[in-house]
Design a protein around this nucleic acid. Sequence first.
DNA 1: GAGCAATCTTTCCGTCGTCAAGATAATTTT
DNA 2: AAAATTATCTTGACGACGGAAAGATTGCTC
Lengths: 211, 211
Amino acid sequence: MARTPSGSNAYHHGDLRSALLAAADSLLEDRGVEGFTLRECARRAGVSHAAPAHHFKDVRGLLTAVAAGAFDRLTTSMHDRKALAPGDPLSQLQGAGEGYIAFALGEPQHFYLMFRCSVVNTEDEALSASGRAAFLELERPVAALHAVDDAMADANGNIDAVLLWSLVHGFAHLYLDGRVGRYSELDAATLAERVIGRTLTALGGHLPAKL
Amino acid sequence: MARTPSGSNAYHHGDLRSALLAAADSLLEDRGVEGFTLRECARRAGVSHAAPAHHFKDVRGLLTAVAAGAFDRLTTSMHDRKALAPGDPLSQLQGAGEGYIAFALGEPQHFYLMFRCSVVNTEDEALSASGRAAFLELERPVAALHAVDDAMADANGNIDAVLLWSLVHGFAHLYLDGRVGRYSELDAATLAERVIGRTLTALGGHLPAKL
DNA sequence: GAGCAATCTTTCCGTCGTCAAGATAATTTT
DNA sequence: AAAATTATCTTGACGACGGAAAGATTGCTC
């Protein structure tokens, strides 16, 4: 198993599946989703253009696997930021949001891919599992916040999760498109930190009544 | 000028540019950005596959024009909603946000296209003008809100515009991806209304100090 | 060691975007 | 009004793409 140490075997690469995923990652980073090509991916892996079909049904299958891996890294990014933050729900939410945006800015092409449902097999088991895991990182602190304040939970149900998720998701997309940069001299991370912070303090200061 | 009334002239369609734009609109709606094809577009316009080149440099040029038109309709959608709302800045913002999302849900494929910078010529003059006009519909009420409350303007600068824009943009994308539907039995419009409403009341109730 | 399954290559097909060259219609010039 | 010019559209070609089919090679199983 593992890879054949016999140098360059024309046949039976040994771990072509992993090699293709690595090639796909670098190709995606270089050319973006639109410039992604199955044949170029095979070329980078040093293999014929029909080889990937034996490991992934088609280009969609390959990109689906790439997207699943990216979701896992998104989860990690959010998780890491939360670990550095204080334990209260608001700080945890701030960390999760910043982690979300940090991943998007760090791997823009992967981030695009993950939400391009027409390019990816949304019914894939691994992909949807990784997707759910990622968003749990954001939803758990929201639930914790509501647990602290029952009135808020009753009044707003799961609105807040959707709200914060929309916020960081939209910010990431708009910033990557270069549509918010000119609005501020702040760098992306600082701007994101303030946008999330302002939202959370507003929501947090809005616990009672008022709606 | 205008179109030749002489029925089906093989040559000199008369208004092929408009016909191609119409064909592109319907094709985009049917197949999405990924399924969009210049040849199929020409087919729908009843013209050879090389004809579009005389009116649009390439497929990117055609899609750029389509995107510009879509931005104009986005502007209209926001403008119309604001016209129906009360005149106070918060209500205007609520209307603009709902109009933004209403457009996205009504023309999802066009909405996708507008923000797919790798498929569109972002340096196109008409496109960027239409884009700026659309976002002004959202930014003007924010400025009005800050004019009412100077302290807020000083403290938050243009953060609020980025915040609200990110919110509606992210919500639209996530809802279209089917990622927020299962979180609520509410239909999209109602959910959007509540998300925006909750954000605005939180921000509005957060005028003084607190940061 | 023989058969079998998995893996990879080669070849082929239809479609794509773009280019070049030719044909036709409208416009301008003379 | 006729000729020349320009704009518009078609046809045909090219290379690149994704995918399918068939053949070659290797590793696994019995």
